[in-house]
Design a protein around this nucleic acid. Structure first.
Lengths: 314, 314
DNA sequence: GCGGTTCATGCTCAGATGAGCAGGGCGGAT
DNA sequence: ATCCGCCCTGCTCATCTGAGCATGAACCGC
């Protein structure tokens, strides 16, 4: 009889969802009372036979967001649907869009916003609307002067965010990673640099992404690290980087010596922030995303469905 | 504003379908009246942003069935869901199951059922329940004595269907295709054979499948045709076979000479039947399935979702 | 400017649905 | 054999939802 009930619940679901019959009509068709039909329907839902999906580039996944908040202790989570998406780029674009939306709707509007840089943040900046805020201060939280080509994308990101928010950007005039620790100390003792970092520390919110530990990393592309350096970091357990600092699955610094040569906010400073918004999308970043959330590096996560499910269910 | 409405309808849909809020609650959350929310919801449905799928091996696709009836003039159609199916075999099993269900529920119960044979029908026979009918006559409608191995599967199918339906099977003691037309004439003039064919002609319903025109065909496997023969048939436009007779996309006999050497019901006899149930599943049979339906070879089609959509939308 | 048209909005009302409850059948324990 | 408790069923009632309608704003051509 349980077998029959299961079949019946499927028949009922077909008539209800695909043929738009009322439960009463279904009852007549299957020789059941309408209450029985209602129960079969909720049974079908409970057993997961009914899958409802919202297919839209801007669609979110609220139940997953809720789980992230409840099971991972995030203050907030934005999970974009990856339904009907073929390319990894598309996923990143949707996530960036969502991050821009979140930032626009963020209340209270942060007086000063600390930002990192990279491909993802560049996209976020691009999706922000002119006038998303009125007079926001934007400050870079990690070094970003490129060593070779693509110079200025880091600066451009911060400037774009500030300009569209009718504010001004404070740039951190320093490379991300220095060759020698002495140089790093020297740069940090520079009054301008020290001032910017001080300002970064006092930002009311942070917006940053994370990089995967692979050869496609911006650090390799920008010339801060060689491909072999990344291999070495991976060997030591690195899953990716946050504001230029490479971490293992538990969020610990993988290479303290390298970390000491990295300019910008430290991870602990980030962890103590009230509003730390991480924007992380794409399959290659599943591991870092997990590390970021696990180790409390962010209070708010903006990501895609697959990454979120990876974080939740491993 | 239209852009905003679209976004709103998505937000509303998320809250309604993923969070189980009432339209009223959503209205409060989004500062809308509940009527506006209702309209946004139907808009989201109309634009196809809401996708509802029933995920179950026994699930059917009623809207597609309806389209097959209305747009292709079938008396009835059974379309099984191919959601969550990985293997082609699984699709065939589901379809066979559905065909068995259909046969069991068929009213009036056919006094005599004409059946063909093949892998699909064998599965159907296997899924029939003991006692699906009480006293049904089963008669083979095309030759099926195997020339080499696997002897008897054709007979076994008919016998199983009859036995489970508490009836008896009448076998057609003849090969499917003969080498020379004279032999075919001789066999057909045999009293027993002629009697069986006569009985087949007067069956009250037919159950048959179709084969793809490829080297995996049962005709090749059984030794009736060489792989090169099939290639030649394809060159002449064959998309597959029904009761051993190869047809082109319009349902016409591809090779009249070969057809004349084929023993069993003719296609026109099948076309004139009141109840001709075709069971066709799998991607490799899309073309034949289309030909069968287009040329009116069946009144009832049992198939899978993908094949049905191929028939409907090309 | 003006009349006409279109369209979105908020409403009434009836139909559809879900929550919770009483009655009764069934199986197991004593 | 009898009692007890569980679960399934069909019910009442309150809530939710969709259809259809009147209103008024916006838009268009004249």
């Amino acid at each position: 009889m349980v077998e029959t009930d299961e079949l019946l619940s499927i028949r009922a679901a077909e008539l209800y969802y695909e043929e738009n019959k009322t439960q009463d009509e279904i009852g007549q068709a299957l020789h059941l009372t309408r209450w029985k039909v209602g129960r079969l329907l909720s049974q079908a839902k409970a057993k997961g036979y009914i899958r409802i999906e919202i297919v839209h580039p801007r669609a979110r996944r609220l139940p997953i967001e809720r789980r992230l908040r409840e099971e991972r202790g995030l203050d907030d989570a934005i999970v974009v649907s990856s339904a009907g998406v073929d390319s990894a780029d598309e996923v990143q674009v949707r996530t960036a869009q969502a991050a821009a939306d979140y930032l626009t709707a963020l209340r209270p509007v942060p007086r000063t916003l600390g930002v990192s840089w990279g491909r993802t943040l560049h996209l976020v900046a691009g999706h922000l609307r002119q006038g998303w805020a009125s007079g926001v201060g934007v400050v870079q939280i990690n070094g970003g002067v490129s060593l070779n080509r693509r110079a200025g994308t880091a600066a451009a990101t911060a400037v774009a965010i500030a300009q569209k928010g009718a504010g001004h950007a404070t740039l951190l005039p320093s490379p991300a990673i220095l060759e020698r620790i002495e140089t790093k100390r020297a740069i940090e003792s520079d009054r301008v640099v020290a001032g910017v970092i001080e300002q970064a520390r006092s930002a009311s919110a942070y917006l940053f992404s994370a990089g995967a530990a692979d050869h496609g990393s911006v650090h390799v592309e920008s010339g801060y690290l060689a491909a072999s350096d990344v291999d070495e970091l991976v060997r030591k357990g690195a899953v990716g980087d946050v504001v230029g600092r490479y971490i293992d699955p538990d969020g610990n610094i993988v290479d303290p010596a390298l970390d000491a040569r990295t300019v910008g906010l430290t991870l602990d400073e980030l962890r103590n922030a009230d509003h730390a918004i991480a924007v992380i999308a794409g399959r290659s970043k599943h591991a870092v995303a997990d590390a970021v959330v696990r180790s409390g590096l962010c209070t708010v996560l903006v990501t895609d469905e697959e990454t979120a499910l990876h974080i939740l269910d491993g």
